[in-house]
Design a protein around this nucleic acid. Structure first.
Lengths: 257, 257
DNA sequence: CGGGGGTTTGAGTCCGTTCAAAATACGTGG
DNA sequence: CCACGTATTTTGAACGGACTCAAACCCCCG
């Protein structure tokens, strides 16, 4: 009964966890000041004292694959920061279908949109791999924002940029075939999950299952797989499990929109 | 040559205007302080002096149907406030297809997302009817935000809420038929453009052409019209030109998502 | 070795798009 | 006020992409 924050019954096609998360007897807190992502974070303009305050107050917690950081319909209690692992933000409809809004990796923040809107979460955040995640409660965040206007400005910029990204995704979904949307998705993976290999080719390790790739581009699993076959037939890329070799990485640059 | 700000070559299927806009010899400035929407605006916590400063600096301008307030690809020079009329925010793809992100009516703000992201406009704003629109330049807005943190907090809330709305639209487009998306769109029109009539029915005056309705729900004109016929066959609504009579207004509440 | 996801393929169907053409509404100038 | 040109709306027919359903396969894990 005491495991409420991380568990939660799950909608859609996911397993319900009944095992309590491994109790973090010793808290594995990384100092925020030594985080490699601090410079692009909202805290980049805070002084040492304020940063150590965040380190002191935040809670860090490990999540197993499939566990939820927060769940659709719950009130927002704070924001999350991914220390390691991969987390997906998924919005589910009443009929069980779902869409993945975005995926967050090391150094990414989660849940701030809902913090600012003041509504309940319209989506869930789900660990796609074993992950370590920090949590900063609402009150602390509110105080920091009141005391340091730079932080508010950072979030304004970030929210505005996020919205632009979603708009583009929306446009792409409306106007492109599944094949082109998959290509666009690979393009977004290029930086975080890709690495150049011999022959000018690009290798990408997909962070998602076929089903979740489908959820990211608004289609079904089978259509994703058929789009993969189509790209192979055209000599654009080769797929094998989670590995993708893109023969023409140039296509990933301009092809989106 | 001096009409650059309001003209602009137009992408897609729109007419290019060569007639200069009617010169506003006398500026028709409404006092912001007496605006009926001031209470829900970002300026709701400003004192009289600051509000009159906005009134003094802002520019008001009439736009004819089809004219652009700003155009995709241009840098942001400030934000807009619709005094009267209706304005659509449209994002166009290279192939000529376009999507309408949102429509703004009396009292609505435009362009603030791009102001905060600092990028060029990813979309255009187009008057759908003869409109009067105010313009507040970037610098003034920056100064106000620096001086009054409340304003920044207002925009944070607003951007967060906007993004939630787009997410929902995205989910709806991915998972619903054209018929249901049209129903969802009618639901969003209910408050601004609807009025109850006899028999518990609801009358809506559509602010858009069929083509633009299609652009709002990510489909083509013909599909919108066929969805209308389907709704008529089911006895849900009757369509005649721009007028819609919804026989079962209850459906417009929960049916979305 | 069995079970359960995840992946893959095939077949059939349906929804939505595209293209073409007719009908209607609208605004402008005579 | 009417005639005309243009944009919008409407309908039909045909095509195609994507979804659904079903079944087989694969791989990891217990």
């Amino acid at each position: 009964m005491l495991n409420m924050p991380i568990l939660g019954g799950v909608m859609g096609s996911h397993t319900v966890f009944t095992i309590p998360a491994p109790a973090p007897a010793f808290s594995l807190k990384r100092e925020c000041a030594s985080c490699p992502h601090i410079k692009e974070s909202p805290w980049c303009h805070l002084d040492d004292q304020e940063i150590s305050r965040i380190t002191r107050i935040k809670k860090c917690q490990p999540y197993l694959t499939g566990q939820l950081l927060f769940e659709q319909g719950m009130p927002c209690k704070g924001i999350f920061c991914v220390v390691s692992g991969i987390v997906a933000v998924r919005q589910s409809a009443a009929d069980g279908s779902s869409v993945i809004i975005r995926i967050a990796g090391e150094g990414d923040l989660l849940g701030y949109r809902t913090f600012f809107s003041g509504e309940d979460y319209p989506d869930s955040a789900e660990a796609l791999s074993p992950s370590m995640v920090c949590f900063i409660p609402c009150q602390t965040l509110s105080e920091i924002i009141k005391e340091t206007p730079e932080v508010a400005r950072h979030f304004l910029r970030r929210l505005a940029a996020d919205q632009g990204a979603i708009q583009e995704k929306f446009l792409q979904t409306s106007n492109c075939s599944v094949r082109d949307r998959l290509l666009g998705l690979l393009a977004t993976f290029k930086n975080s999950y890709g690495s150049p290999i011999a022959g000018g080719e690009l290798e990408i390790r997909l962070p998602l299952t076929r089903k979740d790739l489908a959820a990211m581009i608004g289609t079904c699993t089978e259509s994703v797989i058929r789009a993969m076959r189509a790209l192979e037939k055209d000599g654009v890329a080769r797929f094998s499990g989670r590995m993708v070799v893109v023969a023409k990485p140039d296509l990933l640059c301009d092809d989106l929109l």
